[in-house]
């Protein structure tokens, strides 16, 4: 059987809010090392990769590798019934066709049990090669969310450029154009408010803003976001989940004809 008990149940709630509108049905691959998920969005332009390591759970048991086929909208509906401070336990039998979610209130005076049917999903996994990216930018996730939202009101594609100065976001549309530059900034009190740029090669790529917007639904998961870029490769937008793993989004670029 599989059982995972997460003291910070709000993390799982936030993960579902971040991916439920991008991916419809997917397998949660459970193994003794944790829970992994990899899925493309319906238009095959973006890829989501989630890892929740077993060490991040208060209690974790997985006797046999299980692929739990789940409709994310339905799972999100059930997780919405959990309080932000609840402990969430996921459970599934090896040969079962359901998954149960148990929510325990902080002082254990309210215990909720939800059971959801599983689906058979034959997902082919893509091989994501390890890449030495030409540019890696870490910045406040709220800042990235704000920039993407603001640019989306002006245009539908963003050119993201990285130089040793910093990272720039540009767009244009019917009403005009916009360019936002975030400089490297390490003289701030909290590390999480820093913008750091690791650059090996200046790089500039074009992406559809509606996907970047969708990725920023993960902002609640981490105060920082890391953007990794290389010429003619998908951008990686990564939200680290403290002590647990990460939620990564890969977005294919738009290339000039």
């Amino acid at each position: 059987m599989f059982e995972g008990r997460l003291l910070q149940g709000s993390l799982l709630k936030k993960v579902l809010e971040a991916i439920k509108d991008l991916v419809t049905d997917t397998n949660f691959d459970c193994s003794e090392t944790g829970i992994a998920l990899q899925a493309m969005d319906s238009s095959h332009v973006a890829l989501v990769s989630l890892l929740l390591k077993d060490t991040g759970f208060d209690h974790f048991r997985c006797d046999r590798n299980l692929a739990l086929g789940i409709n994310l909208q339905n799972m999100s509906k059930m997780l919405k019934c959990a309080g932000n401070d609840d402990i969430i336990t996921l459970k599934a039998e090896d040969e079962g066709d359901t998954i149960t979610f148990m929510f325990e209130s902080p002082n254990q005076d309210k215990i909720s049990d939800f059971e959801m049917k599983l689906m058979d999903i034959d997902s082919e996994h893509l091989g994501i090669p390890d890449t030495d990216y030409q540019a890696i930018v870490t910045m406040p996730s709220a800042e990235f969310q704000r920039i993407v939202r603001d640019l989306s009101s002006i245009g539908d594609t963003a050119v993201i450029g990285v130089t040793k100065e910093g990272i720039s976001f540009s767009t244009g549309g019917d009403i005009g154009k916009a360019n936002i530059v975030c400089r490297q900034n390490t003289n701030v009190d909290k590390e999480e408010d820093q913008t750091t740029v690791e650059i090996h090669e200046p790089v500039s790529l074009t992406f559809a803003l509606r996907y970047l917007n969708s990725f920023t639904k993960a902002t609640a998961l981490s105060p920082q976001v890391t953007l990794s870029l290389s010429k003619e490769l998908p951008i990686v937008v990564e939200y680290k989940i403290e002590k647990m793993g990460f939620l990564r989004f890969y977005l294919a670029p738009k290339i000039e004809e």
Binding site: H44, L126, Y250
Partner: peptide
């Protein structure tokens, strides 16, 4: 504004 590529064209199916 360029042609959208697909993510699968970058990451081969395993």
């Amino acid at each position: 504004k360029g042609r959208q590529t697909s993510i699968a064209s970058f990451f081969g199916a395993k």
